[in-house]
Design a protein around this nucleic acid. Sequence first.
DNA 1: CCTAAACATTTTAAGCTTGAATTTTATACA
DNA 2: TGTATAAAATTCAAGCTTAAAATGTTTAGG
Lengths: 155, 155
Amino acid sequence: MTAGNVAGNSLSKERLRLWLRMLRVTRQVEAELRERLRTEHDSTLPRFDVMAALYAAEEGLKMNELSKRLRVSNGNVTGIIDRLVEDGAVERIAIEGDRRATRVCLTVVGRENFRGMAVEHERWINALFEGVNEEDAHHIGELLHRLPASPNNAD
Amino acid sequence: MTAGNVAGNSLSKERLRLWLRMLRVTRQVEAELRERLRTEHDSTLPRFDVMAALYAAEEGLKMNELSKRLRVSNGNVTGIIDRLVEDGAVERIAIEGDRRATRVCLTVVGRENFRGMAVEHERWINALFEGVNEEDAHHIGELLHRLPASPNNAD
DNA sequence: CCTAAACATTTTAAGCTTGAATTTTATACA
DNA sequence: TGTATAAAATTCAAGCTTAAAATGTTTAGG
């Protein structure tokens, strides 16, 4: 995980250190979430992300919008949706007037299922970030705003 | 990516927001790195991580130590090393006195190759985190220390 | 009407990732 | 010594991920 201090000044090194720490924390939290989703809900993180996006969209989303929103490739979304459809959590609905696209929706079962996971998800995060008080959480959140990843963010 | 505000108090929500932002930034940076490693060095992020760990270990590492250090499964490391060996960047060396284990080392070519990537990697990170000054980088870094992922961290 | 370009999605090949099962080797201890 | 247990690594099946190619559909221009 260390990137090898091959060159660079002090600021560059401090930024590199920051990045490596972010990476470590993120991976650790993701590992925790993945483990619990697997053992307690027989699910996965990508499925959770997809369901969260669909849950937030009352009328469902086109595959298109889904992959844009989650910032993953469209082929990727196809596979995840395929499996969610198999499990009866999601359905593909034809769009009138455009036979290219489909609208993807959570089923009643899917919504129910997601609600259960989401409640626990928030609890897990709350526990994992126990060492961070509200002020710090807010502060870091603000700082993160300056970082690259804010092209057309909607959340 | 939004997790659905299903329950929780204000602190819990602030922590959730923090997590979602960390996730977004991390994924964006990873996507950038992956893209550049691919197009400019015909490589990948997992390979870079493995090579970084080996570069830092003068005498190489056992598969065991490698997977522990990178916090990924051992089966995973096997595959990545297989491909690095194919490419001549890494070699497996028998350990005297224990025929179960192997020591994995960067070859001269591998070290050379990694050095090139690492220099650029630090530049990329430095550019991606341009909006963060030294003080902030240090501050966030310190705060991240309080977060879960610090079991037996060595960096 | 026809056709070229744009669009939405799926398919494909390659690689990453995990947890579980398997294989091989070492160690402990009866 | 013999055998059970532990340890190191690989293999396996399933799923995630990407970039690129292919498929089918719509739209715009001539």
